[in-house]
Amino acid sequence: MLSAFRSGALKSVIQGHGAFKVLAVVPSRQGHSISKQERIETWDYVNSVYFGPERDMKNFPNPTQPAKHEPVRLGIVPQSWFDFMYPKTGVTGPYVFGGGLALWMMSKEIMVVDHYFWEIPSFWIMVYILCNHQKVGPQLTKWVAEKYEARKHVQFTRPINMMKDAEKANIAKLDRLIEETETIKHVHQAKKEGVEFQLEAAYRQRLQTAYQEVKKRLDYEVEKANTKRRFEQDHMVNWIVNSVTKSITPQQEKESIQLFQMDYLQLWSCKSIEADLSLGC
């Protein structure tokens, strides 16, 4: 499938027909934001092309970016080439082969030693020195790694994480919305209870009124009886007193006054005698 892309399939893709119809559906570099549905469709389709049943993962595994290059000798020549020649030619074989090849190429004027010839070996020698330098080498490695990490972050990690966070927040929000629908149950309960409590209050009000009315009537009866008795007593007392006062004649009055005067005088003399006695003492 990958070879199919290499052999000119890209042209048909760009024109909007062929293996990747998706590009025609989702025009690139356009202002409108891509919906979730569109993204899912795109990804499903691309996944089916790259990792579908037609893909021969055994012979053509997915290429990955290794974290570190394979071991090399002389800075640029792969170690595996030396390992390949070692059983047949020994340790010096590869070097002899390299030197012999260079000599042969020079003799056939495939490799011409002109003014520009030294640019190639001097460039690679400089690269070798820089990469193996004690201070510059690690710094270079670090710089390249940082560049790669930054690109990965901007292009892939950050947008993907933003999408994930947005979806998680959305799910949490929707869950909360579902939870909030429970409100109607409580509202119903509260409304029902409101009506029931008002009925109950009215009923209790009736009880209270009945009690108060009965009690009022009883109290009235008691009070009525009390008042009647009190009035009767007062009236009786007044009547008796009045009758007695009326029955007193002027003769009787005079006698009683005389009696009072005598009593008074008697009292007065007693008092004076007491006073004398006390003075005499």
Partner: peptide, 19 residues
């Protein structure tokens, strides 16, 4: 990301690809 070529990346995210 390490398993994607630039081509794959552009197919997965066509809005970032050069058109």
């Amino acid at each position: 990301f390490e398993e994607m070529t630039v081509e794959m990346f552009n197919y997965y995210f066509p809005e970032t690809a050069l058109n």
